[in-house]
Design a binder for these strands. Sequence first.
DNA 1: ATATTCCCCTGGAAGC
DNA 2: TGCTTCCAGGGGAATA
Length: 277
Amino acid sequence: MPELPEVETIVRSLRPHLRGAVIRDVAAPGGRLRHPVDVEALRLACRGQAIAELRRRAKYILVELSSGTVLVLHLGMTGAFRVVPSAAPAATHERVVWILEDGRSWRFMDPRRFGSVQVCTSLGADGLPAALAGLGPEPLEAGFDGEYLYRRTRGRDRPIKNHIMDQAEVVGVGNIYASEALFRAGISPRRRCGTLSRKALDRLADAIREVLTEAIAAGGTTIDDFRDVDGSEGHFTTNLQVYGRQGQDCLRCGRPGGIRRLVQAGRSTYCCPRCQR
DNA sequence: ATATTCCCCTGGAAGC
DNA sequence: TGCTTCCAGGGGAATA
């Protein structure tokens, strides 16, 4: 569910609620997530600590505590947060609850348990968790452009869609925005990445930055589960040009029923075969 | 090394 | 109504 724009939306929403708040205690009422939730390590790290800052790296949320310890959170496919006025009893699918000194509670729900909540045990030289060291560049920061994509795709053979969803190449692009960016760039998702010209990859880098920026401005995309911290939906859904539109008319060339759905690496891809080569 | 497949888990929608 | 099948925004381990 959450790709870069959704995670960014959530971090921006959480920040004013949580920055400066002091954690009284942590509970893990919901059993294991992707990894077992080490509630003792969480308590040790969090009790009595203020939340100094919240940041996003790739699709991870980093919670920096006043002690310098960092919590590493991931939403998986169905993770969501709420901040509520009291320490209410656990709701359905609630996995981790932080009780704050001011009486509020910060709650993580995740029906499918693909998310994760971990205490970072070692920081790299860049101040980021060492466990995130293998991630590629942020697409909205310097260092990501057509030249970079060109360099990283020479001699590689996989489909370009799989390549841009590889978090070691560029972070934050998931299944929705991969299809959307390739449509905007006029590139077939099945094209072998090593065969793309520098010019085409310039267009693709621009398209990725453009679609992510627009989606952040719209508060993300809600297909089914995604909700902001206040429960609201993302508005970018209405701007999707291909995702979920199989059998509908292409918005660029107008071909009736022009949008196709295909499967790559077990994930749905949407494209217009006439517009994307 | 590189690329693809499978699996984790739960719920909703669609098909019969 | 009820049962079965398919599908889902992610990521990582296990295979080719």
